[in-house]
């Protein structure tokens, strides 16, 4: 229970800091950065619920990110639902899809689980491309997300969108943190580390696995919603293979064994991307070299690396 209150404190402090920042200094670029970070960090952290927390390596997590973006943008464009109802309905639909996909996939082990999630994502992507009348095909959903002011929140105003994203980021991370720290999260880690033992202890393996798969899908969809708000539309790239790769990279970069690893990884990834893109058209080259240095040098995420620095003893325990 101690951990819960401490986490709450951290979350609250982060929220105050984020909401207060624009009062101290006004920078639209900073706000843009946080909005994009909130989308990617939710996506990456949700992926880490599977990868780090449960040992389920998914190559196709982008499916839910893309689904969230499209479902939300379509609901806003084609119905008169309010912002909040559209968000909730999108998350509910994402849970259903994740339940369906999860039910099919989770019985597969290790690399085959990765492949089948990837295959399902590719199928989803090609459906987005083909179903032009609904999705706009390769050109994406155009025409913007309609301006609807609800309870004083006008998401088309940069400042309001920033606050909206900041709140959802902190709330989403807090919820996921709560999940990993709960007995349920511990069960998952036990399954991750030793499936046979967990089975021996009488833990039905598929139920917690499916549950975490659905939860991860829901949080990824939340990230997708924020992304679609930022670009005021939805694009097939969201559901494409390289985008799942981005999240994997963020997770690896930040550290799979630290809860905030994916958040840190997302921030570093976005910052590197922004800086290199500005400096050179050969940003791929520079980014590739940095990834190599990191992968061969640290061999683990930045936060994981910090936690096991020699001489720091059992830093990880608490």
């Amino acid at each position: 229970m101690n951990g819960f209150w401490r986490d709450s404190g951290v979350a609250l402090a982060a929220l105050v800091l984020l909401l207060g920042a624009p009062l101290a200094f006004s920078s639209p670029a900073f706000e843009d950065f946080i909005i994009r970070l909130s989308a990617l960090a939710l996506f990456a952290t949700s992926l880490n619920l599977l990868v780090g927390g449960s040992g389920m390596i998914s190559f196709g997590h982008g499916l839910f990110y893309g689904f969230g973006a499209y479902a939300f943008a379509l609901l806003m464009q084609r119905t008169t639902l309010s912002l909040a109802s559209a968000v909730l309905l999108t998350l509910f639909l994402a849970a259903l899809v994740a339940l369906l996909v999860g039910a099919v996939c989770i019985r597969l082990k290790t690399i085959y689980f990765a492949f089948v999630t990837l295959a399902i994502q590719m199928l989803f992507y090609s459906v987005i491309i083909s179903w032009v009348s609904l999705t706009g095909g390769d050109q994406g959903l155009q025409g913007g997300i309609p301006r609807r002011v609800i309870a004083g929140i006008d998401i088309n105003q940069q400042g309001h969108l920033y606050q909206f994203c900041a709140v959802l980021l902190v709330a989403g991370l807090f919820a996921m943190r709560h999940i990993t720290a709960s007995p349920f999260g511990m069960t998952l880690r036990m399954i991750r580390d030793n499936e046979a033992r967990a089975a021996f202890l009488g833990i039905p393996l598929w139920r917690p696995k499916l549950a975490i798969f659905v939860l991860a899908g829901v949080f990824a969809a939340l990230g997708g919603i924020l992304a679609s708000l930022f670009v005021s539309g939805a694009y097939p790239e969201f559901a494409d293979w390289p985008f799942s790769g981005q999240a994997i990279f963020a997770v690896m970069l930040g550290g799979i064994d630290s809860f905030l690893g994916p958040l840190a990884g997302s921030a570093i990834l976005l910052a590197l991307n922004d800086i290199f893109t500005r400096l050179t058209e050969y940003h791929g080259l520079v980014q590739g070299v940095v990834i190599l240095l990191f992968a061969l040098g640290l061999r683990r995420g930045v936060l994981d690396f910090l936690r096991v620095l020699p001489g720091r003893g059992e830093v990880a325990s608490r």
Binding site: G3, G53, R177, S258, A267, V315, A316, R318
Partner: peptide
């Protein structure tokens, strides 16, 4: 590996 820690250092690094 079982503890996804939210240590002070992690917060600081972020």
């Amino acid at each position: 590996k079982t503890k996804p820690g939210l240590g002070r250092r992690a917060v600081l690094a972020t």
